[in-house]
Design a protein around this nucleic acid. Structure first.
Lengths: 115, 115
DNA sequence: TTGCAATACATAGCATCACAATGTATAGTA
DNA sequence: TACTATACATTGTGATGCTATGTATTGCAA
């Protein structure tokens, strides 16, 4: 039972990388912060778990889209900061174009309909 | 090698059901026609294979979102026509809301950026 | 009249992969 | 002292997406 409808897992999967890449354009960030930023940005509708996010970050690093460095929070706690690489910029552009393509197709259908 | 970048499979997965439901709002249709309509609608960017579409249609029928009837084309060829059921209307509304939610989050990020 | 392309639907099977579950550790605070 | 929030990591597997393959008819070009 969910008062707020849970997002379809396919949609979460399709948006995770674009969201991460888009957030990192603004500057480096780290896993835990990304989860919160996305939650806030979506009005609490997108709630990533850390268990799903970290493997995605690792994969994106393997792909050469992002890079990481261990850093220290003001509190003294260790954090792994991620930042965008050149290939990540390129990947973001491609993924944004793809998203726009599909969105346009859907919007063409929706503008004629009040579902 | 693709001159036109292939869409990420996650994005295809996330958009298949919304597209089918949205197309069927306009009236009944059948598998092969849906493939072509989506291709045209997307400027040839979304190219579904029949092998992936039919299982999706079967699943959506099992879910009670759509119903099918065997019909005859003008040519005499047999076709399976699908149409939207009440639950399909509901599913479409939910999926559209979800799509809008994620799109808005992305657009908030993109409007500040020229990637 | 033959053969190819387009039309039209179907499903078995398996490779993959998303992510739940679990583990570790520290800081803050009630 | 104990609980919550912060912070990162990985394993294992069950689900499932989709490739590959099969069947059949129509239309048409050669």
């Amino acid at each position: 039972m969910y008062s707020i409808a849970m997002l379809a897992k396919e949609l979460v999967a399709a948006s995770t990388e674009p969201l991460i890449l888009s957030l990192l354009v603004k500057g480096e960030s780290y896993g835990y912060a990304l989860i919160q930023e996305v939650k806030r940005l979506s009005g609490d509708k997108i709630e990533w778990t850390d268990g799903m996010l970290y493997p995605v970050l690792h994969r994106m690093e393997r792909e050469g889209w992002i890079q990481s460095r261990w850093g220290e929070a003001e509190t003294g706690r260790k954090r792994k900061y991620y930042s965008l690489k050149k290939n990540g910029q390129k990947a973001l552009k491609e993924q944004r174009d793809q998203w726009v393509t599909v969105s346009k197709a859907l919007q063409q259908l929706w503008k004629e309909q009040y579902v």
